[in-house]
Design a protein around this nucleic acid. Structure first.
Lengths: 156, 156
DNA sequence: AAAGATTGACTCGTCAATCTTT
DNA sequence: AAAGATTGACGAGTCAATCTTT
C-alpha cells in the first residue's frame, strides 16, 4: 500500500487534462464558426453582465483568464472585429473602459444560445447533479489552493 | 424550475476552466525552472514507458495532446535541448522514431519526483478518494463523448 | 493513391520593458 | 514612485500545403 494512491491520483490528473483538451476544442470549434473564440465570448459575457459602462482593462483581465497584456491583445482583435470599443476614462486618463458595441451585443445574443447548448451537450448534460456538485466544489478548492500558493510565492 | 439546472452546470463549467488554468500554470512554472514544459515532460513519460525503441511520431502525437505538426515542433525543441533524438526507421523510410537521449532520461529522472510532488500538492492531495473517483469517471466520460461527437463529424 | 512527417503562414498568449498619467 | 495600459520579442500550437516513400 505504498504507491497505489498515487496511481489513482495520476489517472484522475490525466483524465482531467484530456477532458479539458477535448471539451475546449469541441466548444472552440463551434464558436469559431461564428467568428468568435472562447476568450472573446468570455469577454463579452463579462462586459454585458457588467452593464453599460463597460469595464476597465485591469478589472476585465482579472475576470477572464488572461494576463494584462494578453487582454490588450485580445481587445485589439475584438475592436478590429467591431465587437468592442475602447473608451478612455474622463475621470482618470490612465484607465480605459472596454465597452461592447451594438454589433458585439448582437453577436453575443445570436451566438449565446448555441454556445450554451454546446456547453450542455459537451459538459453539463454529461454530469449527474451529484457529480456536478463534486466538480464545482473540488475545482473551486483547487483554484483556492493554487492562488494561495501563488500569493505565498510573491512575498518575501 | 426552468433555468436553475443551467446555473449549477455553468458554475461547474467555469470552475473547471479556472481550475485547469490555475493548476496547469502552477505546475508549468515548477517544471519551467528545470527547463521543461508540461508537454515535454509528457513526451518523456511516454517515451520512457515505451522502452528503448522509442515511438513513431504519429503514435506519440496521439498519446500526448498534440497535433501531428505540433509534435514535430515540440520534438524540434526537445532535440535542440538534447533531450531526444530522431531515428529514421530502417524498415520504412517514411517513419521516424523518437528516442530519449541519456541526458533526456537523466533529466526526467531528476525532475520526475519534484513534478509528481507538484501534482500531488496542487491536485491529487486536494481530493478525497471518493472525489478522485468521481473526477476520473466523469472526465473519462467527457473525453469519450467528445471523441464520439468528433468522429460523427468527419464521416458523411 | 495513401501514409508519414515536415514546413509556411498564422493565431494566441506570455514576460519584461516602456510610456503616460496620477 | 506607483498605477494603468501598451509594445517588442518571443514561445507554443494549429491548419493547409508539401515532400518523400510505400
Amino acid at each position: 500500500m505504498a504507491k497505489r494512491p498515487q496511481r489513482a491520483g495520476l489517472a484522475a490528473w490525466r483524465a482531467f487534462l484530456e477532458a479539458h483538451h477535448a471539451v475546449v476544442e469541441a466548444l472552440g470549434d463551434e464558436l469559431e464558426r461564428a467568428g468568435l473564440s472562447l476568450s472573446m465570448y468570455d469577454v463579452l459575457v463579462h462586459l454585458i453582465e457588467a452593464g453599460g459602462a463597460g469595464l476597465r482593462m485591469a478589472d476585465l483581465a482579472q475576470r477572464v483568464l488572461l494576463s494584462k497584456s494578453g487582454l490588450t491583445r485580445l481587445v485589439d482583435r475584438m475592436a478590429l472585429a467591431g465587437l468592442v470599443t475602447r473608451q478612455p476614462s474622463t475621470a482618470d486618463a490612465r484607465v480605459v473602459h472596454v465597452v461592447p458595441t451594438p454589433a458585439g451585443i448582437a453577436t453575443f445574443r445570436r451566438i449565446s444560445p448555441t454556445h450554451l447548448r454546446g456547453v450542455a451537450r459537451h459538459f453539463t448534460s454529461m454530469l449527474s447533479p451529484e457529480e456536478t456538485v463534486v466538480i464545482t466544489t473540488t475545482m473551486g478548492r483547487l483554484v483556492q489552493a493554487a492562488s494561495a500558493a501563488n500569493a505565498g510565492q510573491r512575498e518575501p
